[in-house]
Design a protein around this nucleic acid. Structure first.
Lengths: 112, 112
DNA sequence: TTTTATTACCTTGTATCACAAAGTACATAA
DNA sequence: TTATGTACTTTGTGATACAAGGTAATAAAA
């Protein structure tokens, strides 16, 4: 395995760590549905695929961080709009702290 | 599952993403052995356990990012000192970029 | 001498989860 | 009626963090 393959793998793992955080963050601004969240993450170069995001949304819903409702689409099949709950906002706040702590830890490890 | 359990899980995943990066970073400063790396990570509040770090060091060695040598200890059994290779330093540089990109991505997602 | 403590390394089994790939379903245009 | 685009879902696989337990070397205590 060459260096770039290895780094790709590490990138995947780094993304893995922040994916739930990103999704809660997006939904904290406005309700959205899976395909739209997917596009938004792609724009931000946080590459994810369908097979990742659908189960993740279901998990977060099962944990009570999200709820959803069906809405008709102007074109195509209905969309499952997810909405963040109070519990979700609470979790998001905790993740903000966790993220900042990790960023700081890495900064110290890298600089020293 | 309550909010804190969920956040603990997310923290674990966040750590997961940067663990290889942290280890290469530590070894880029000086050769070290597993138990010592473990202590250093614990001090930095990057909680990891033995069952995580030993296989990880072996993986990185197998990828050619590290080499090792045995050295006698002043007390107790001999230590397996790991040393970063040129390939490891190259990978570390790539991970620096990857990490900064993710930090920036999260900053944009969280601020906007 | 035997036991205990300390340090260090290693392995096995389990659960989680990102991804690839494939499938289902709805709406609209050709 | 077929093709296209959109959207949601599921299955199988591989990677890996962790819990738990094991092995081994050294030195101090009983």
């Amino acid at each position: 395995m060459d260096v770039m393959n290895n780094v790709e793998n590490v990138k995947t793992q780094m993304r893995r760590g922040v994916l739930e955080y990103c999704i809660l963050s997006i939904l904290s601004k406005k309700d959205s549905y899976a395909s739209s969240i997917l596009s938004e993450l792609k724009e931000a170069r946080m590459i994810v695929v369908e097979g990742t995001i659908y189960p993740l949304l279901i998990r977060q819903k099962n944990q009570g961080l999200l709820t959803y409702r069906w809405e008709e689409s102007p074109q195509g099949p209905p969309r499952k709009y997810y909405q963040i709950t109070d519990k979700g906002r609470q979790a998001l706040a905790e993740m903000d702290s966790a993220w900042q702590e990790i960023v700081e830890t890495i900064r110290l490890l890298r600089d020293r």
